[in-house]
């Protein structure tokens, strides 16, 4: 698996992501400083979590204008795979690579706790080690994860099967209590139309080790490692 992790100033979960990818693939990913623009040869580009440029503007807005994002967009256009987690998801929406926006959490507070995600499709490169409808636990740690898009966009995303994960109860039900940040239609993660760009708010990379509370996030990385085993 040839993976690069893009590091913007203020990104802080790049190590966590590298650990999860290395556990799955057996080798360390390449770290890409935001001023680099050569992504040639990579199967997967990952934009990890954190506070790029402090998120003093809208979350992800500054990073979306960074030179490396032109290269990430070209990589996706070539059919390359992209994973954006938390701030990475925000950056992908700000860069126009995924629709909608991540607003302040409905409760207007940063939330750091475990949530449960329902797998909406288990047939993508990212999720083939999960079962359809399976629920897994993932830590969330964000202040701006409240997914928003207009109704027409939401209908289209659902119609085209581009919703990746939804916030749910451990039993898989969609309830207001199980949707911690108030996201529209409980959307926690989204695919691009070609299913090669995935953005999600919670952190499966922080739950890949039984010692740290579980391995619920491991199937996502196992799926990627298998897909890009060559």
């Amino acid at each position: 698996m040839r993976v690069g992790i893009v590091v913007f100033p203020g990104i802080n979960r790049e190590r966590d992501m590298a650990i999860a990818l290395e556990r799955a693939a057996g080798h360390a990913p390449r770290m890409i400083w935001h001023r680099e623009t050569d992504l040639a040869g990579l199967d997967l580009v990952v934009i990890p979590g954190g506070f790029s440029f402090g998120d003093y503007l809208r979350c992800g807005a500054m990073a979306a204008q960074s030179p490396v994002m032109t290269a990430v967009r070209a990589h996706a256009t070539r059919g390359g795979y992209v994973l954006g987690v938390c701030n990475g998801f925000q950056i992908l929406t700000e860069a126009g690579m995924l629709p909608g926006a991540l607003l302040r959490n409905a409760g207007l507070r940063f939330l750091s706790r475990d949530c449960h995600l329902r797998v909406e499709r288990a047939d993508t490169v990212f999720t083939r080690h999960y079962q359809q409808g399976e629920v897994f636990r993932a830590p969330m740690a964000h202040g701006d994860g409240n997914y928003f898009a207009d109704e027409a966009t939401l209908d289209r995303l659902e119609g085209e099967g581009l919703v990746a994960f939804r916030y749910a109860t451990p039993a898989g039900e969609l309830t207001p209590e199980a949707n911690p940040n108030g996201s529209a239609r409980a959307i926690a993660g989204l695919y691009s139309p070609n299913l090669r760009v995935l953005g999600l708010m919670p952190h499966p990379e922080n739950l890949v080790d039984p010692l740290l509370g579980g391995e619920d996030g491991k199937p996502l990385f196992a799926s990627l490692a298998e897909a890009f085993a060559a």
Binding site: N12, R13, R15, D16, I19, A20, G49, R109, F110, L111, S112, R113, P139, A141, H203, E205, N206, L211, L212, G213
Partner: peptide, 19 residues
Amino acid sequence: RAWVWDQYDATVGGQTVKR
């Protein structure tokens, strides 16, 4: 104290064994 802890990122770094 969950209301308080929930506002602090306790997992970043990927090494928190007991939160």
